[in-house]
Design a protein around this nucleic acid. Structure first.
Lengths: 211, 211
DNA sequence: GTCTATACGCTGATAGAC
DNA sequence: GTCTATCAGCGTATAGAC
């Protein structure tokens, strides 16, 4: 297996090396705790080139941001092109997010677990980006088709994806030891069938007006 | 109404002024975009005193962090002392979180919407703090009592609170225009009764193993 | 115990050689 | 087009006066 030797230098383009290094550093230390010099060392690309190509640290973060959003959008697009119900599409997206959380942890961490507004104040929040809007649209179509219960778009969308996103956060924060892929089936059941136990207590539910 | 005039200086203690100013600044600009000088100006407390009392910017952030966690813990404690089912307790906590998101936005934002690990790397993540563990325990007791469906603790807890937390995030990011308190009833129904529509499609649910 | 003025280090950014 | 050496500015932290 001669190709496994380190003698052959990686043909990876400069951009890719910088973005990969930046992703790892930003996720591990946080954007503000990483200097351009750190990116330089990690990527083995000189500071001058980084400024030439990206215009600075913010430029790197922005390029990374849109690169990952595009990848995510392609993922959602692939799900849209598959022949299945909207309900199944929701499940598929959750399954893919869980898989990515395990296999490409940093990508998910940068997309779902960072506060971009702090270092990219001029960019819109990630939840208003195309792939997230597409996810909401899938939900809306599911409602129209009668596959998903009716309700205000945001409430329904948050109820469907909120639990999964919460699990991802807990997993990334190290509170959940088990791979999320193991929890998928159970989570999906909880989400679609509701959290009620044996005892029916609907009439006693707490209302916001009560004290 | 003589007390409404500005002539009478606020008797607020120094600590309180600093923490209030820091909360507002941190939430608006992010921890790393706020200098100690900014806190000084906003709180009208001198830099020397800030360093004397808190030991620096990190100290302020840490004090604020634990102060808010304590407040939150008291809130959860109050819910625990009330006579109601664990299921109602979950609802009550969500109702309170929604109310706080509207009336004390910055507190919720700092607790649920910041990445503390970036500026307080030695502190445990917020979801492992006492009040969050208490919330999970309420869920566990609800499962034992048969009020809540059985399952792995984290999955069940994430399914119950994940949607609410997601709504809070969306509201704080400006995507939801309506006050969350208006969405409470609908969200609670979604969460307990599940997201299934009219058509029963359980058999076709997507499994993680499938492709 | 409270404040002002100052120093030091780090980081983002650039200019100019190759 | 790529890199190295250097600069300027900001932000933390402190020392010392009141």
């Amino acid at each position: 297996m001669p190709y496994l030797t380190k003698s052959a230098p990686e043909p990876e383009p400069l951009d890719c090396r910088v973005l990969t290094a930046a992703l790892d550093l930003f996720v591990e230390h946080g954007f503000h705790n990483v200097s351009v010099h750190d990116v330089q060392k990690e990527s083995s690309v000189s500071i001058g080139s980084i400024y030439k190509h990206f215009g600075g640290k913010e430029g790197v973060a922005k390029a990374l941001y849109y690169h990952l959003i595009n990848e995510f959008e392609e993922m959602v697009n692939a799900v849209l092109e598959d022949e299945m119900t909207n309900r199944e599409r929701c499940n598929k997206i959750i399954a893919l997010l869980f898989e990515y959380s395990e296999t490409r942890r940093n990508i998910i961490s940068y997309m779902l677990h960072s506060k971009h507004r702090e270092f990219l104040p001029s960019e819109p929040p990630i939840c208003s980006s195309t792939p997230f809007i597409m996810m909401r649209d899938i939900v809306l179509q599911g409602i129209e088709a009668g596959e998903i219960r009716n309700g205000s778009p945001w409430v329904v969308a948050a109820s469907i994806f909120g639990g999964a996103i919460r699990l991802i956060h807990l997993r990334l924060d190290g509170l959940i030891d088990e791979p999320l892929t193991n929890l998928y089936d159970e989570h999906i059941n909880c989400m679609w069938q509701g959290m009620s136990g044996d005892i029916s207590l609907e009439s006693k539910d707490y209302k916001s007006s009560t004290n």
